[in-house]
Computed example of a mutant assay.
Amino acid sequence: MENLYDHWADVYDDIYAYLTEDKDFYLEWAKDSIGPVLELGCGTGRITIPIAQNDVDIVGIDISPKMIEVAKKKLEEKKVTSKIDLLIEDMRNFQLNQKFSLIIIPFRGFLSLLSVDDQISTLTSIKKHMHRDTRLVFDIFVPKEDIISKSDNLLYYFKDVSHDSRIGHSEVWHKTDYDLFNQRISSKVIVDEIGDKGKVINRYYKDFEIRYIHRWEMFHLLNSCGFKIEDLYGTFSYESFDENSNEMIWVAKLA
């Protein structure tokens, strides 16, 4: 996993600019906490920076130096003056010598852990940074059987991305393969940069891999690692989880 996401740093914000529904959710949790907040897998600061802009002390860690570099540049551009620390750390084994009132892992960051051992190591590291009233809040998607059983590995169109700073736009394509035995999803993202004449002027390939987790698997993992589950939501609007939910948003504390 080390430095795996460095090659995403230059395009991450453009591709995932559509992600907005989780921002208010995590911001609300951060504002309601007494601080400080810890974010694991902070990336380019998509969630971290808005929290800091609301005068909440926050520490963001990410394994990618380039992601952290982009986040720091955004801090300078936005002239954020709140207390915010961005650190290059591995969520599987970090030691910050500090406890937090809230620990968050937005946008399915927990799924970047590709083995049960990595998941346990991460939860063990998290526990060292919690006190009795700390809440751990994170989201993962629901692995729907009708989707993961279709491993055709076909290339499909994902979205268009506009560029504010230059002419043209980008077309984003996905190619996904499912390993049902190991519960892994391997994705190849192809980004075609389209010039003002409608022709492809650059093409970039971005790969990533995640390990999906079923509901009761996550339930037992949290319990076995010494956590008590307080809530499980199915949406970022706090709707209860049910068989139609696409998201699993977990809230846990120390048992």
Score class of each variant (00 low, 15 high):
E2L: 13
N3L: 14
D6C: 07
W8T: 08
D10M: 05
Y12T: 11
A17C: 09
D22N: 11
F25G: 12
E28A: 01
K31F: 10
K31W: 09
I34K: 10
P36G: 12
P36H: 04
V37R: 05
L38A: 00
T44K: 02
T44Y: 02
G45N: 05
I47M: 06
T48W: 10
T48R: 07
P50W: 00
I51T: 12
N54S: 09
D55H: 10
G60S: 09
I63L: 11
V70W: 15
L75D: 05
V80L: 06
S82V: 10
I84K: 04
L86F: 03
L86H: 03
I88V: 15
I88T: 13
D90C: 06
D90I: 11
D90L: 11
M91P: 08
N93Y: 00
L96H: 08
L96W: 14
N97L: 07
Q98P: 08
K99D: 02
S101P: 02
S101V: 01
L102I: 09
I103L: 07
P106L: 05
F107M: 02
G109R: 01
L111D: 00
S112A: 13
S112H: 02
S112K: 00
L114E: 08
V116G: 04
D117C: 07
I120W: 00
I120N: 03
I120P: 08
S121C: 09
K127S: 10
K127L: 09
K128Y: 06
R132T: 14
T134L: 11
V137I: 13
F138M: 07
D139G: 04
D139A: 04
F141Y: 14
V142A: 07
V142T: 11
V142G: 07
E145M: 08
D146P: 05
S151Q: 14
D152W: 15
D152C: 04
N153F: 07
N153D: 10
L154S: 14
Y157A: 15
S162D: 14
H163G: 01
H163I: 01
D164T: 06
V172E: 04
K175E: 12
K175C: 06
T176L: 01
L180N: 05
L180A: 05
Q183K: 10
Q183E: 09
I185Y: 03
I185D: 02
S186A: 06
I190N: 05
V191W: 10
D192K: 04
G195T: 06
G195P: 04
K197H: 09
G198R: 00
K199F: 10
I201V: 13
I201F: 03
N202R: 07
R203N: 09
Y204S: 08
F208D: 01
F208Q: 02
I210L: 11
I210S: 09
R211D: 13
Y212A: 07
Y212G: 03
H214E: 15
H214K: 15
H220V: 13
S224F: 08
S224A: 06
F227Y: 15
I229D: 14
E230R: 14
Y233C: 14
G234Q: 04
T235C: 10
T235L: 07
S240Q: 14
D242V: 04
E247Y: 15
V251S: 07
